[in-house]
Amino acid sequence: MLEVRDIKKSFGDLEVLKGVDLKVDAGEVIAILGPSGSGKTTLLRCINFLETADAGTLHFDGETFDLAHVSKKDAARLRKKTGFVFQNYNLFRNKTALQNVMEGLVIARKVPKGEAEERARAALEKVGLADRCDYYPSQLSGGQQQRVAIARAMATEPELIYFDEPTSALDPELTGEVLSVMRELAAEGMTMVVVTHEMGFAREVSNRVIFMENGVVVEEGNSKEFFQHPKEERTRAFLRLFDEEE
């Protein structure tokens, strides 16, 4: 469904992505792991055109795009097929939870208001926030805000959803509620690309794991093999770090 080839990105002298490939099939849940500064967030942002990559190609739904020269029109068209969940939620602060979810339907996709509201309410109910429709982001906890953000991403019925460290800004006790929503979404067959530090989530929910460091993919494999028999020494060292924590 989605294939990225040889994506490169530098910020000034700092080479953040040194030629990364990524292939996503429909229905897959992919976890991207790696230490801070490994380029995993930048990878997601480049694929969704929030950053302009220096080089690389993107195949999506049978179309091919040069990541370094994507027109605004193509970028907007492709974004409509995907959802994006940010680390710090980025809910529209001047809109209620319901309006946050409706915005992409009514304004971007011209869905009639009545239908959009129905879909938005359904999405909010799914993430367990049916009773918070009329609350503004400032009136919601971090976990609730992130669940609204997930509802916002899935209400548009995207072909895949990107998650950029969705639980990193949350207290441990709020992490669970967000992860369980994501688990449900995965169980329903949603295609997901998740940058995360949650080893538990990666182990249980993802089909495939990509381990990145210093702008390259160090190891990639199905998640069972990845966690039970990591091939690279670097991967083993990284995983040991988390075993000690747990």
Partner: peptide, 8 residues
């Protein structure tokens, strides 16, 4: 960015 990502 969130506006872009919901397709606006």
């Amino acid at each position: 960015e969130a506006g872009y990502c919901v397709g606006m």
